[in-house]
Design a protein around this nucleic acid. Sequence first.
DNA 1: GCATTATTTTGACCATGTTCAAAAAACGTT
DNA 2: AACGTTTTTTGAACATGGTCAAAATAATGC
Lengths: 236, 236
Amino acid sequence: MVTALATGSATAALLAEAPATSKGEQTRRHILACALELFREQGFEATTMQDIAARADVVKSAAYYYFPGKEAIIQAYYEVVQAEQERICAEVFAETKDLRRRMKVAMDTKFDLAKDDRRLLGVVFRYTGEPEHPLSCLGRGTAEIRRRSTAMFREAIAEERLPKDLEELLPVALWSLQMGLLVMFLYDESAGQRRTRRLSDGALELTLKLVGLAKLPVLRPVRTKVLGLLREAELV
Amino acid sequence: MVTALATGSATAALLAEAPATSKGEQTRRHILACALELFREQGFEATTMQDIAARADVVKSAAYYYFPGKEAIIQAYYEVVQAEQERICAEVFAETKDLRRRMKVAMDTKFDLAKDDRRLLGVVFRYTGEPEHPLSCLGRGTAEIRRRSTAMFREAIAEERLPKDLEELLPVALWSLQMGLLVMFLYDESAGQRRTRRLSDGALELTLKLVGLAKLPVLRPVRTKVLGLLREAELV
DNA sequence: GCATTATTTTGACCATGTTCAAAAAACGTT
DNA sequence: AACGTTTTTTGAACATGGTCAAAATAATGC
């Protein structure tokens, strides 16, 4: 049975390509695609593993074989988005050394990719308050994807000649900003989430200005102080 | 059967007092107390509604009659904490007009009350990314408790003569700061969460300094700009 | 006190989540 | 192709989450 991938979503197509490796990987992708379809159609809560298995033409326990639970599917979804963002950024980074363009693509792509899946994306934050949980978006279980995300921002500013401390601080700061904006994005009822987009642009301009200023030696002590505080808090 | 309330927790005692009104309210409290005991003993996930009902000597559906689910119990717990914080703050506010002392008690009490219940507190953040969910800590369903929390901060700064815009901005800013620190508090592995405490104190001093500076008319345009941005984002 | 109404409690019920051991299929080796 | 091994699939089993109508109890008005 061929999976109907015509969902119009920005990520659906990604699941189709990449010539299936093992049989298992094929099924895994098929289940993931079906699950996302259902999540989009009826929402996350309303969709059961039963439903997912049924649409994917496998039994329930097969779905569990590939994903420990519904949340794991969201995790997989987020990884697809992250990978796609990296691909797009790499393309643009290769094209231009202009800081503004690089930053903008790094900040905007995730919004673009997730714009029709806000309810899905929300589930990523479900275990924010539970450090031990493998899906905690700030916990150990997601350290790798976080590392990839900050690495992308590091890449974005790589062409600039910046003070060492800023080079260290900025990627983490931008990652935090993105996470914050992502939450706002979820709550933003304005058409096309224009409000969040504008705030994102505003924050970007502010950051660029700050980066410009930061080169002045006058501001060194301020940076050192902020960095010290964050280091003490083990946030960087 | 008498409930063992000797859990050493800062909130347990609160559930005992207050001369039971209706029969229902009595049972409700009893179930809540038992649930919290179990959550503390075995964690939130590991505890089932069955367990809770069993310890409270009622049947499962009785527990459901009072609480729509496990999360609702956490919600109730958070409300108890909030109420207790308000009580303590009111006491201190009546005692002193000193801004530093007022702010400190407003910021610290929640940490003090929840210090042994970090895993419980984490569950409060579970629906952060799902605006529609009644328990979303940023959603409509929790607007009332958020209002109470910001009102407390407003109360804390009420004795100062501050510019109008700051009077509006500060409570929201402090509330956000508290939420952020709360998340950090949950992840903080340092003994007694000293790290978070220190950061909290640092942020407090910084705020006090800013409040001092803000009275200077020179900074007016900066404030206006920030407030404008936040207003546009409908964050205040 | 008795009848009426609202609240509380109950046990039975079903869907869903989750686990598991065993069957089946795919794979690699000789 | 026959063999053993690994991966994948299956169906059955059980616990938990969650609902419901009806029984029991408490509250209220007469």
